Simulated scan of single mutants.
Amino acid sequence: MSSPSSLTPDSPNKGFLLQVPSPIVTRRSRTKSTTEIANSNPEVKGKVKYFCRTKGHGFITPDDGGVDIFLHISDIEGEYIPLEGDEVTYRLCPIPPKREKYQATHVRIVNFTPEVHHRWDCLPSEGH
Rank of each mutant, 00 (worst) to 15 (best):
L83E: 09
S5K: 10
S40T: 08
T89Q: 05
G58Q: 05
W120T: 05
G46M: 05
G66T: 06
R27H: 09
R119K: 15
E126I: 00
C122Q: 09
R99S: 11
K55I: 01
P62W: 05
Q19W: 08
C52W: 01
N111W: 00
H106L: 03
S33R: 12
K45A: 09
T113S: 11
E100N: 14
S29W: 11
D64G: 07
Y80D: 08
R99M: 12
L17N: 11
E43F: 10
H57E: 07
Q103T: 10
T31V: 00
K101P: 00
D63Y: 04
P9C: 01
T31F: 04
I24R: 12
V44D: 06
F51S: 05
G58A: 06
Y50M: 15
W120G: 07
Y90G: 04
H117A: 06
C52Y: 03
S74E: 08
P4E: 01
I109C: 02
S29T: 13
K45H: 12
V25L: 06
K14T: 08
E36N: 14
S74T: 14
G66V: 04
P12H: 02
F16S: 09
G46V: 02
V88S: 05
D68R: 08
I60A: 04
G127A: 03
P42C: 01
L123Q: 09
S40A: 14
K98C: 07
D121S: 13
K49Y: 10
P114C: 05
E77I: 11
K55W: 03
L83I: 07
G46P: 03
R119W: 01
F112S: 09
I60E: 05
R99E: 15
S11V: 00
T8D: 14
Y50H: 12
C122V: 10
K98G: 09
S125C: 08
S5N: 11
K14P: 02
S22K: 00
I109H: 02
T8V: 06
F51P: 04
V25N: 03
T26C: 07
R53S: 11
T113P: 00
L83T: 05
R99A: 13
A104N: 07
N39C: 09
I24D: 10
S22R: 04
